[in-house]
Computed example of a mutant assay.
Amino acid sequence: MPKILAAVDGSENANRVVEYVLQLARSYREPLEVHVLNVQPPVTFGDIKKFVGQEALDAYYHDEGIRTLATARQRLDKSAIAHTYHIGVGPAAETIVNYAQKHGCTQIVMGTRGLSPISSLLVGSVATKVLHLTEIPVTYVK
């Protein structure tokens, strides 16, 4: 069974990722297993952990992840596609690649903000980093 990792961040491009995965599922002869992942950036400013416990931070990551996943969940829950949701915390590209490897995903599908090649080179992007960090096929949805 093909396992697709759909990386979503709550943006319009992420919504298109879900639509693409739904279309992809209709084109496969066998059922897909879809893993939907949202990565929350770790809170790292100052000595925040002196004032806010890990439990409060974990609750914050969970709440932000659930809010970010809401549209994707709503759309996929209406489908007959087997799917799970996960909220990761850490550097986005590394977290996406590690999740895909750990769960045996056969493809990563993610959005791109549509940066020009020069902007992407100067600023960097999660999509570019994912492509460089993994051997798993990556599909960008714009």
Rank of each mutant, 00 (worst) to 15 (best):
G46M: 05
N38H: 15
V36K: 02
L32Q: 04
P137N: 01
L24I: 09
T44N: 02
L22P: 05
N15M: 15
G124T: 14
K78W: 04
H86A: 12
S125G: 12
L69Y: 13
V36Q: 08
S11E: 12
L22F: 05
L57Q: 08
L122C: 04
R73C: 12
F51H: 15
I81S: 03
K129R: 13
K49N: 11
V138T: 01
G124R: 14
G111H: 02
V141C: 05
L57Y: 09
H62D: 08
P2R: 14
I81H: 06
I108N: 06
A92T: 13
P31G: 02
T71W: 15
Q23N: 11
D77T: 10
I136E: 04
R26T: 12
A93Q: 06
A25S: 14
A82E: 06
N98Y: 05
A70D: 11
P41I: 07
K78G: 09
Y60V: 01
D47N: 13
A72W: 11
V138G: 00
T112D: 03
V97S: 04
Y60P: 01
S79G: 05
L122P: 06
Q101V: 04
R75E: 09
P42I: 13
R26H: 12
G65S: 01
A6P: 10
Q107E: 14
V141F: 06
F45A: 14
I118R: 07
G10I: 12
K102V: 03
A80C: 00
S11T: 15
L24S: 07
G65K: 02
V34R: 02
H62R: 07
Q107W: 01
K3A: 08
G90C: 02
N13C: 15
G124S: 13
M1Q: 07
L69M: 11
A82M: 00
P31T: 09
L133H: 08
E64L: 09
N98R: 12
K49P: 00
K78N: 12
L37S: 02
G10M: 11
I66P: 00
Y85N: 02
V21F: 04
T134N: 06
P2M: 15
Q23F: 09
N15K: 15
K49Q: 11
D77N: 11
R29V: 01
I66G: 00
A92Q: 11
I96T: 05
Y140S: 01
V123T: 09
P42M: 12
Q54Y: 04
D58S: 05
E135C: 03
T84I: 03
H86N: 13
A127M: 04
G10W: 15
V89D: 00
T68L: 10
L32P: 06
V21Q: 07
A127W: 05
S119E: 13
A127H: 07
E64W: 04
A70T: 10
C105A: 09
T128D: 13
T71Q: 13
E64R: 12
V138W: 00
E94I: 06
V89H: 04
L5W: 14
M110E: 01
G90K: 08
